[in-house]
Amino acid sequence: MKVAIAQMSPVLGRVDKNVEIHLEFIEKAVKEKADLIIFPELSLTGYSLKDLVPEVALRPETSSIMARLLKASKDIDLVFGLVEERTENPGLFYNSAAYLTGGEIAHIHRKVFLPTSGMFEEARFFARGHDFMAFPTGSNRAGLLICRDLLHYSSSYCLLAGGAGLIIAISAAPGRGITDEGSQGFESSQNWELMGKAISYFSSAYVIYCNRVGLEDGVTFAGGSFIYTPDGELCLKLPYLEAAFSIQEIDPDLIRKARKNRPYKRDDRPEVIWRSLGRLLREKDED
């Protein structure tokens, strides 16, 4: 299976331009016979949207931009980021990731953990998602995460419990921290790398992380997209800070082998976790 990663920089607030950029990357990936192409978080809109959020929102069922991407998904599976407004719940806007395949929406994940502290203000503008769900994509099961979702390990656990062999995290992670002299990139990139390695190994799943690059309002997005194998080995690392496009062959059979050798998935006990969490929530005191 060939996975294309578009470590790109969208135009802030211009869905019309960004869809063209997406289609160009898609065309390139199709030519190179990739099976799946992944774009970063909010790839259709840019990240620092603030009050632009409602203006760039799409309703997946009726959007003509979505229709173009659905058409493109007949040739290749797509994962990208969008601001989503749901027809049945108007006025709520989600930071969403869509997986399209064969002209259909296979799944839309709505970002659950919206960073809102320090430089981040996502919960001022977005509604929170409520679910982590693995879903079938042909011969594999995949799960979607958006940026900070990956840094909460409970998110990936839900995808493990749901049987995901591909954990796809799309990201618009800004770079912060410049005191590590040995690093080519920002210190903050290490958060995702550490989590990617650990989650891939202990979930026996591929972790595919696509981060964006470029600058918005003085903030540099860190790049450094990567793929870890189900054995926790780095099999692709894109450069920090600069735009890149890369196609990586991955072997879904490695998921089977890893799960056979280290049966974390077989031995997982979601009912125990469920019971423990249930008790925690029932007994939770006010703090």
Binding site: G118, M119, P174, G175, R176, G177, I178, T179, E187, D217, G218, V219, T220
Partner: peptide, 15 residues
């Protein structure tokens, strides 16, 4: 805009 480099930057997350 101040070019963000560190963990705490004037104009970004020094609030």
């Amino acid at each position: 805009p101040v070019a963000k480099l560190s963990e705490r930057t004037v104009g970004h997350d020094f609030l």
